[in-house]
Design a protein around this nucleic acid. Structure first.
Lengths: 346, 346
DNA sequence: CTGTTAGCGCGTTCAT
DNA sequence: ATGAACGCGCTAACAG
C-alpha cells in the first residue's frame, strides 16, 4: 500500500508537507500544494485510517448496537442513523447482541479498543448506573430503550402516551375486557407501555383483569403462547393489545389457527407499523413509531457531541407516536360518548 | 487508556513478554505468565486493536456491503453472516450503498484503508472485470447478485430454477397469459429470473406476450407502476409474477386500490417469503430464498479464505430455492395433466 | 525463557 | 513556508 512517504518522495518534499496538504493544516505554497496533489493522484495514495487512528486516538467510526437485526423494527432506524452519519463522514460498525448482556458488554469494550468514541445503542442492560464505568471514554446515545438511572442522551418513543391513546380508543369503541400481551418489564419500553395501558384503564375506571395480562418472550412464539394463555382465561377478551410487532405476529398465528376473526370476534391494535400491517385483511390499526426519525435524531445528537456542538445537559428526546386507524377494531354501540383524556396524559 | 507498557511496568517485565502472554506466542514461564495475567487483570488492560492493525497490517473486521438495509430481504442474511463471523472473532462493518455505484466504490476503498481484508457484498456493479483492480488486496465474496465476469467466490440463489418452477406451476394450473414485473436486467438476479420465466414458457410452447412484461424500479412504487402498465395492456393477465418483494408489495397496493381479487381475478406468486406473506388473505404462494443460509455460507467462505483454509479455485455456491404453495394461485380446469419439466431445468 | 531494537503510517512539536 | 525528530501501541526479528 502506498504511504505518505512514497508520496513525499514522489513530490520531492517532506512527509510533513504532504500531511499538511491532506489535512489543510498549516501553510503550504500554492506551487508545492499542486505538486503534492499531483503526486497523490499519480500514486493513488489513500490515507491510512488505522495510522491516523493510532496517532490521534480517534476514529471515524461510530458503533451501533442493537438486539436483533432480524427484527424489522430496526432496519429503518439504521437507515436513519446511516443517513446522518454518512453525511458527517462517520461509518458505522454494527453489532447484534441477541439480547445477551455479556455480548453487549463485550461489544462495548471492542469499540473502545478501536478508538471508537461514540455508540448508538438499544440496550438490554436493565440498569445504567451499575454499568456506567463500562462506558467510560465512549459517548453513548440510547435509543428505543432506556436503562434505569441513565445519565446520557436518549431518543425514545413515547410509549406511555402510545398505549394510553390506543387503550382509550378501544374503550371508546365500547371494549372493556382488554387483554395485554406484554414483554419483560425490566425493559423500559414494556414498562412504559404497561403504564400507559393501566393509566387509561384507571382513568376510565375500568377494572383490569389480571387473567388477561400475559407477560412472555417478545418473539413470535412468545406472542403465540401469550395468546393461548389469554384465550384460556375464564374471561373472553373483547380486544387485545400486543406490545410489539413480533408478538402481534404470534397473536395472528394463534387467531388464524383457531379461526378467531378480527375484528368480529376480537379487536386488535398492533405496535409498530410494518409493511404487512396495511396488507392484511382487515388492515391493522396500529401505533406507529417513527423509526427513521428515531435513528436520525440519535445520530444527530451523537455527531454533535463528538464534535462538541452539543449542549452540556443530556438530551432526552421523546418522539410522539402516530396512531393509525384502519380496520381491526370493531365499532360497538354506546361508543363515541365516552370522554377522552389522552391530551391530559401527556 | 492503559497500554501494554503500563502492564509491563506493573508486572515488572518487558513489553514483549506481555505481548507473548496475550498472543500465546513464544515461551513464557508459568510464573511470569501468572504475574502478567494478574497485571492485566489489575490494570484492566485491553489490547488496542488499532495499534495491532497498524503493526500487523491486519484487522479483525470484515466488511458487509448491501444495497438497502430497509429491504427486509437483507436482515436475515446479515444475521447469517453475523452468526459465522462472531464465532470466528470477526466483527462486521456494514455499509449501505442505496444502489449507488460511486458509494460502493468509496466504501470498498474505505475498507482497505482500515486494513479490512475481506468483504461480503451484494454489489450493484454491473461488471466485475472493469472494476477488478479496485478489489486488489481485498477478498470479496459476492452474494445474491453476481456482476458479469466475476472471478471470485459467490453465493447466490438459483433464480433461474426458481422462476422456472413458479412459471411452470402457473402453467400447470391452467394459466397462459402470465405477466412479469421485473427489475433492471443489468442486475444478475433479474436477468436470471427472466431467463427462468422465458425458458418455462418456451418449454411449454406458450407465447410470451411482451405487453405483459414490465421492467421498472424494484421498489414499491416501481411495482405499482408496473402493475398499472400491465393492467392497461390490451390483454388481461391471468397471473402475475413480481420479481422481488418490494414489487410484490407495489402490486398488492395496485390490486387493492382497483379491487382486483387474488386469486379470483388474478393469480400471484411472490418472490421471497417475508413475514406478511403467510398473514395476508389468501396467504401468498412464494418462492423462498434461503436468506440465513446465504449469509452463513458467504461468511464461511470468507472466513476460510482469510485463514487460508479455502481451496484455490473459487467457489460458486448456488442455493436451491424452496417453492411454498399457499393460496394465491387459482386452480383452473384441465390443469394437472400438463407435463412438468422443472427437473430438467436444473 | 526474556529483553532490545526497529518500524508499521501518521501527526505534533519545534526548529529552520 | 518547510523539514527533522519523536512517539502513538504494538509485534517481528534477533540477541542473549
Amino acid at each position: 500500500m502506498v504511504s505518505i512517504k512514497n508520496v513525499a518522495r514522489f513530490a520531492d518534499v517532506s512527509v510533513m508537507t504532504v500531511s499538511r496538504v491532506i489535512n489543510a493544516s498549516g501553510y503550504v505554497s500554492q506551487k508545492t500544494r499542486a505538486k503534492v496533489l499531483e503526486a497523490i493522484d499519480k500514486t493513488g495514495y489513500r490515507v491510512n485510517q488505522t495510522a491516523v487512528g493510532l496517532r490521534t486516538g480517534r476514529s471515524n467510526s461510530i458503533g451501533v448496537i442493537i438486539s436483533d437485526i432480524s427484527n424489522p423494527f430496526f432496519p429503518f432506524i439504521i437507515k436513519g442513523i446511516d443517513y446522518v452519519c454518512s453525511r458527517n463522514n462517520y461509518d458505522t460498525i454494527l453489532f447484534n447482541t441477541g439480547e445477551d448482556i455479556d455480548r453487549e458488554l463485550r461489544y462495548i469494550n471492542l469499540l473502545k479498543q478501536k478508538y471508537v468514541k461514540g455508540v448508538i445503542i438499544s440496550s438490554c442492560l436493565p440498569d445504567y448506573e451499575e454499568n456506567q464505568k463500562i462506558f467510560a471514554g465512549l459517548t453513548p446515545v440510547f435509543f428505543n430503550r432506556k436503562p434505569k438511572g441513565i445519565h446520557a442522551d436518549s431518543v425514545v418513543n413515547d410509549d406511555y402516551q402510545a398505549t394510553f391513546i390506543a387503550t382509550e380508543y378501544l374503550i371508546r369503541k365500547g371494549n372493556r375486557k382488554i387483554a395485554l400481551i406484554n414483554g419483560n418489564m425490566d425493559i423500559s419500553t414494556f414498562r412504559e407501555r404497561y403504564r400507559g395501558f393501566r393509566a387509561a384503564m384507571d382513568r376510565h375506571a375500568i377494572p383490569v383483569c389480571e387473567e388477561l395480562i400475559a407477560v412472555g418472550e417478545y418473539s413470535i412464539e412468545g406472542g403465540y403462547r401469550s395468546a393461548r394463555k389469554i384465550f384460556n382465561a375464564s374471561i373472553r377478551p373483547e380486544a387485545i393489545l400486543p406490545m410489539n410487532n413480533f408478538m402481534t405476529q404470534g397473536l395472528y398465528n394463534y387467531l388464524k389457527e383457531h379461526r378467531i376473526r378480527i375484528p368480529a370476534d376480537v379487536s386488535v391494535i398492533g405496535y409498530n407499523d410494518l409493511d404487512w400491517c396495511s396488507l392484511v385483511v382487515p388492515p391493522l390499526t396500529v401505533i406507529k413509531v417513527k423509526k427513521f426519525e428515531m435513528g436520525k435524531r440519535a445520530a444527530e445528537i451523537l455527531c454533535d457531541r463528538l464534535q462538541y456542538r452539543a449542549p452540556n445537559s443530556f438530551q432526552e428526546i421523546v418522539l410522539e407516536p402516530e396512531f393509525i386507524i384502519r380496520g381491526s377494531v370493531k365499532s360497538a354501540r354506546h361508543a363515541e360518548r365516552t370522554p377522552m383524556y389522552a391530551a391530559e396524559a401527556i
